[in-house]
Structures are given as C-alpha cells and as structure tokens.
Amino acid sequence: MKRLLDGRPFKDWADLMQRVPGVKTATARKVSAAGLRVAGLPL
C-alpha cells in the first residue's frame, strides 16, 4: 500500500502498473475492487 501512496498521482491505471513495482493486472483489479480509483476511474 505504501508504494501506491508514494507514487501518486498516477495519470491512469497503466501508469500505476508501470511505476509501482509488483503491481500487475491482477493486483490492480483487486485494489480497484476494494475502492481505489486512479484519475477518478475504476480499472
């Protein structure tokens, strides 16, 4: 979670997955389902 917070702001989900080590599609889906939004949008 700290890596996500430290990397903000993200332009979009692809930007998040590129810049945060270890976050791939499956992890992004999980955090999106838990309520995380990037640029106001779910994955």
Rank of each mutant, 00 (worst) to 15 (best):
A26C: 01
R3K: 10
K30W: 02
R19S: 12
P21Q: 11
K2V: 12
S32L: 07
V20F: 03
S32V: 06
A14L: 11
A14N: 13
D15M: 09
R8S: 02
D15I: 09
R37Y: 04
V31D: 01
L16W: 04
A28R: 02
A33W: 02
F10G: 03
A34Q: 15
L4G: 00
L43D: 05
A33R: 14
L43A: 10
R8D: 00
L16N: 08
A26T: 15
M17E: 10
L43K: 02
V23M: 12
R19L: 09
P9Y: 08
L4Q: 00
G40L: 05
A28V: 03
R29M: 12
K24D: 11
V38M: 06
A14T: 14
A14M: 05
L36Q: 02
V31F: 13
A28H: 02
V20Q: 10
L4H: 00
R37N: 03
P9F: 07
A34N: 13
A28F: 00
P9S: 07
W13D: 04
R37I: 08
G35M: 12
Q18N: 11
G22R: 13
G40E: 03
R3C: 01
A33M: 10
L36E: 03
D15F: 08
V20G: 07
A39P: 06
V23Y: 06
